[in-house]
Nucleic acid binder design. Structure first.
Length: 477
RNA sequence: GUGAGCGUAGCUCAGCGGCAGAGCAUCGGACUGUGGCUCCGAGGGUCGGGGGUUCAAAUCCCCUCGCUCACCCCA
């Protein structure tokens, strides 16, 4: 008896179906086009890495590393390891969950962590830094400008605009220079992409969070100020006062907002070098005519950020309103064992971009998807060979063609073609085989022409552009 | 991990103690070489799952699972 169990996606992941997938493909192609026009080149990275890479770069205390990573051990490696432990006369029950009250979960983790631990990437900057070091990319001439695209994984509770498998496109600039023009051009690149997506309702927020010279003193100052008003803070914020005072700025508790506004701003406590860098960044944005808001409360969550941080938010989204975010991470490569290297990058959330593009309504799956150019209706077994020849010819000419496998009734075939969105139906039956001309019917106005096989392709192509009809009609903004 | 809302056909939902429903979609027919319209018909259900109350439960009660949104945090 067949098992009637229905399989479904696991929590927080989803299918992306046609026609939506057309919009995704369009967005990815557009992003690639923009990034490559700034001379960025794609780096294809693995989906999983050693757990240690993310722990060290993203930061042990971050939510991402402490509770959101999909970490696993190769089962065969673990089996091997257990056997080797047994070979040393150790008690196997000591490593069996629940078999012994003295074996705690953390002890089991300690045991497992002696063996290679792997993690589905929660972000990709760490991988880029690893690849930069591993491949000796510091010997390449000039700046190393890379971009990546693909899925990331974080085990968070899903909500609007947040998924456990989500898609990011990111760009990174690595090398010996930390000139603010690099930061500004990276941001400019993002604004160009926003324009190409015909998005208007976005805001650029920028800030500087200092560097290891000036930030520790500021964090201490902030902590002292927060302690003075601790009893007015909620539980979450009270905890952060001790663990990570900067995070208090992220609070959305309404009662805390007034308090937060009056806290000392990090940009008032930067060292001279950081202050200069931030001032120059703003000048660089001005000379590019990029509107921005200085948001002193913008502190990014990942440990490796320093100096420049920025974020693009959209009013079209729900609570998860960040479309893209990034910042400078000058110490990261060296911390991972590479040469002293400056770095800056951003990641944008594809899921969120797609949502905003759809909400804006300027670009849609139907306007960027590939249309079905021709539906071939054939009648009678003797016409099928001619139909297959025609289909091959049209497809070879770059057209999208549907050829029914079974002989259809004419009325039903035309009905199906119309519902599939075909631009034309090409009718091949006894009459057409005799005369050698095909009836080509245009659905838009119902007009029909008789054409020789050799003329069909050019007729289909010239009578209407193949793709992006709707986009071409939309005035440039 | 916490809170709230919601689970009935592929989709959107009605029904809220008494035979499991509608619209849309799908398939077939009217209609044998000309689509859209119209009409007729068909298929499709563990009413999320389990337990309880009752002569009788989609409906009332309890538990559980799932989804959505929000918190936390982030793209």
């Amino acid at each position: 008896m067949p098992d009637k169990r229905k399989f479904h996606t696991v929590r927080g992941v989803r299918d992306i179906l046609p026609p939506d997938s057309s919009l995704w493909n369009w967005f990815e192609a557009t992003a690639r086009d923009v990034l490559e026009s700034f001379n960025f080149r794609e780096i294809r990275l693995p989906i999983f890495e050693e757990t240690e890479l993310f722990a060290r770069s993203v930061g042990l205390e971050t939510d991402i590393v402490s509770k959101e990573m999909y970490t696993f051990h190769d089962p065969l490696d673990v089996e091997q390891a257990i056997k080797s432990v047994l070979g040393h006369g150790l008690d196997p029950t000591k490593v069996h969950l629940g078999s012994d009250a003295s074996t705690s979960t953390s002890q089991i983790w300690d045991f497992l962590n002696k063996f290679e631990s792997l993690t589905l990437r929660p972000e990709a900057t760490a991988s880029v830094a690893r690849a930069y070091i591993e491949n000796g990319m510091h010997t390449q001439p000039g700046l190393v400008k890379l971009y990546y695209a693909g899925p990331m994984f974080r085990r968070e509770r899903p909500q609007k605009g947040r998924y456990r498998q989500f898609y990011q496109i990111g760009a990174e600039v690595l090398g010996t220079s930390d000139h603010p023009a690099i930061d500004a051009e990276l941001i400019e690149m993002l604004t160009v992409l926003l324009e190409r997506c015909k998005l208007g309702n976005w805001t650029l927020l920028v800030n500087s969070i200092g560097d290891p010279n000036c930030r520790p003193a500021y964090v201490e100052l902030l902590r002292e100020e927060l302690r003075k008003v601790k009893d007015q803070l909620g539980q979450d914020s009270q905890r952060r006062v001790e663990t990570n005072p900067l995070r208090v700025f992220d609070s959305k508790v309404p009662e805390e907002q007034a308090l937060i506004t009056n806290l000392p701003k990090i940009t008032d406590h930067l060292c001279d070098a950081c202050r200069q860098h931030f001032d120059d960044l703003r000048r660089q944005l001005d000379l590019r005519s990029i509107p921005y808001t200085h948001e002193p409360r913008l502190v990014r969550g990942l440990d490796y950020y320093m100096r420049t941080t920025f974020e693009i938010t959209s009013t079209h989204l729900g609570a998860q309103n960040a479309l893209a975010g990034g910042g400078r991470y000058d110490g990261l490569v060296e911390m991972l064992g590479g040469p002293p290297t400056k770095g800056i990058g951003f990641a944008l959330g594809e899921d969120r971009f797609i949502e905003v593009i759809q909400a804006a309504g300027q670009i849609s799956a139907s306007s960027v998807g590939r249309p079905l150019d021709a539906f071939i209706v054939w009648m009678g077994a003797e016409s099928y060979p001619a139909a297959t020849r025609l289909a091959r010819r049209l497809r070879g000419d770059g057209l999208c063609v549907e050829l029914p496998a079974e002989e259809p009734k004419l009325r039903k075939a035309l009905s199906l073609a119309e519902r599939l969105g075909a631009r034309f139906a090409i009718i091949i039956g006894e009459n057409e085989i005799k005369t050698g001309v095909f009836a080509v019917k245009r659905f838009a106005d119902g007009k029909q022409e008789n054409l020789a096989e050799a003329d069909v392709a050019s007729f289909l192509r010239t009578s209407a552009p193949v793709a992006n009809e709707a986009e071409a009609k939309t005035p440039q903004t």
